[in-house]
């Protein structure tokens, strides 16, 4: 790594994991940091920055992009050049790594997506609705119940000789079904393989309904690490599935690539606040605004005691109050203050 090389930082702040990646000018992944969000997105982003600061100077980072469900939060504290939804970032990253990709299966901590592309452009997508059955969280939960490390879950499934049939429609029922199967004497690998097949069935029924899944098919997101899930997809689709090396952090890779595009478009200047943000005292608080019957829960992010962003209000008056220089926050006693 020479001092002169410039990378783009992509940060994907998801419900379960927070990923930071650096990609170079050509879109090659240089560095990946995979952290568990553990309900503290601000602190985790800072942890990630500290890691980066050990090996890279500020000048090495030429632009920042954020994505994931906490992308706005991440953008505010990092000074992002681009804030993108997860669908676009995943598609951009997959197209970069597997040119010509037509179908992307993505299963993350709390949601799952199906993205269809043609000529490098997204033509259709679907996301799971409220229900998180079949996502990483459910697998995590089952692994914990069976006291198997999640990393071994997939390889156990691969040992199955006869996958049992489990109802994957709902995670509550899936669990009781699994317990029933275990009590009647089915082996653990068979049950886990059955669970993987059930989740895949659920995914394809929910998201793939009426859609044509054309190869090349890429499987990414944290769950793609699970060999059992890959096998189940291959079996269900009758196709080979490509799992990219950096499947865990594809959203962040896409955000980094888009940051590169955005910075170039702007003429080279980045909004990045610098790796020193890792040391800044950041506080997030919320209050219920009682100015109207909507009772919006307004969030405020403070950097060194100064508010840098507010959001969550339907009318937008708190959101714009920061830019307008109105720093007051009447009757705000943060109900919750998390670091």
């Amino acid at each position: 790594m020479g001092v002169r090389s410039v990378f783009y930082l992509g940060v994907d702040v998801g419900s379960v994991s927070t990923n930071l990646v650096l990609v170079d000018q050509l879109g090659n992944v240089e560095e990946t940091i995979y952290l568990r969000t553990q309900g503290r997105p601000l602190a985790v982003i800072q942890t990630g920055l500290k890691e980066l600061a050990k090996r890279y100077p500020d000048e090495a980072i030429g632009g920042v992009g954020t994505t994931g469900s906490a992308r706005t939060l991440g953008a505010v504290i990092l000074g992002a050049d681009v804030v993108k939804n997860e669908i676009t970032t995943h598609a951009v990253a997959a197209e970069q790594i597997v040119p010509g990709v037509r179908t992307i299966l993505e299963i993350g901590g709390q949601d799952s997506k199906l993205i269809l592309l043609k000529n490098g452009v997204v033509t259709d997508f679907a996301m799971n609705t409220v229900c998180a059955a079949g996502t990483g969280s459910f697998l995590d939960q089952q692994a914990a119940r069976l006291q198997i490390p999640i990393t071994k879950f997939g390889s156990l499934a691969a040992e199955a000789r006869h996958a049992v049939r489990i109802a994957g429609r709902c995670s509550v029922f899936a669990e009781s079904d699994m317990i029933h199967k275990q009590q009647t004497g089915h082996t653990l690998p068979d049950i886990i393989a059955g669970l993987c097949e059930a989740l895949v069935r659920n995914y394809l029924n929910n998201l793939g309904k009426g859609k044509q899944l054309v190869p090349p098919i890429v499987f990414q997101g944290g769950v793609a690490a699970n060999v059992g899930m890959c096998r189940a997809f291959e079996k269900a689709l009758g196709q080979a599935i490509i799992v990219p090396e950096h499947h865990m952090v594809m959203g962040a890779v896409g955000a980094a690539i888009l940051a590169g595009e955005a910075v170039k478009q702007k003429g080279g200047a980045s909004n990045f606040k610098g790796l020193a943000m890792a040391e800044q005292p950041l506080v997030a608080g919320s209050k219920e605004c009682k100015d109207c019957p909507n009772l919006c829960e307004v969030i405020e992010i403070c950097e060194a005691g100064q508010p840098i962003a507010r959001w969550g209000d339907r009318c937008g008056k708190w959101e714009s109050s920061v830019a307008a220089g109105k720093q007051d926050w009447p009757d705000l006693k943060p109900q919750t203050a998390v670091r």
């Binding site: 000018q25 879109g27 790594i97 490098g120 452009v121 490509i242 595009e261």
Partner: peptide
């Protein structure tokens, strides 16, 4: 803007796992 984007998209290089 399919066509215009393709031109500006940074060079493609990657791997298959």
């Amino acid at each position: 803007h399919e066509s215009s984007i393709k031109k500006t998209r940074i060079a493609i290089k990657g791997y298959r796992g």
